[in-house]
Amino acid sequence: MGQYGWSLPVAASSYAGKIDFGIWLIHAAMLGIFVLWGAFFVYLLVKFRARPGHRAEREDHADTPAHISVPDSISKFPFAQILYKNKGELKSLIPDMVIMTFEVALIVFYAIPVWSSIKMSVPETADPIRLEIVSEQFGWSVHYAGPDGKLGKRKMPLVHFSNPIGLDLADPASADDIVMGNELRLPVDRTAVIDLLSKDVIHSFFVPEFRIKQDAVPGLSIPIWVTPTKVGKYEITCAQLCGFAHSLMRGDVYVQTQEEFDAWYQSRLAQIPAAATASNPAEEF
């Protein structure tokens, strides 16, 4: 429980730190903007409150710029007329320019590069672990390849409560596959490449500690990846409304050392009866 609190949960993936950096940077900027504007706002309210003998002062209004003459020193510049005569209005755009500069910097140096690295490409690693996560109302099935390293084929008509992902046992690659219900185990510091699928409606795979979130759309297979960096027990939740038991659609994530993971993997393999169904996770519904 110590990993959860009133703020961001513990950061347990390779890119969690990058996302957190953005969140904290933007919140610091937001706070700065809000405090500065707030102080200015209160100052204006106090300074210009109505009181006897005080009359409002008009600014140079844009409606009557004709009488304003542009100084010679700047009249050569393009748009000098328009810019100078409307300088009162243009001044109000200065905060805008500051914020825009900040935003452009965010986009160019932060958002696009980091987004590309998280969502648009999978890091080149020697030995990623590949698996499938199939979501349904209301649970997650995690599909690991067997020792042959191949994920068996799935066929929707084969879906049965004893075969939640419709594993096609006629496919030799399926026989040694492991399917877990609402339980994801990953070795630490090793990239997992996950194909995210849905059997029925749209779900969203969200592990707060990994800072990973991706909708699972029926009909699409969406690749995601994560490299866990901290051993521990985390939580999968569904972030997209998927029906009456949406809030019960959760699972556990165990990030283990490679040795622990291997031991668990072998123990699961040992449970697979020869030429029988792959697995039978207890379904919640």
Partner: peptide, 24 residues
Amino acid sequence: PLFAIGGLTGLPLGLTVTDIYLHD
């Protein structure tokens, strides 16, 4: 000020990277 809070909190949601975590 209240609308400003609303507008400012839109910033991390409009930014792709931070939206990964904050979306939904």
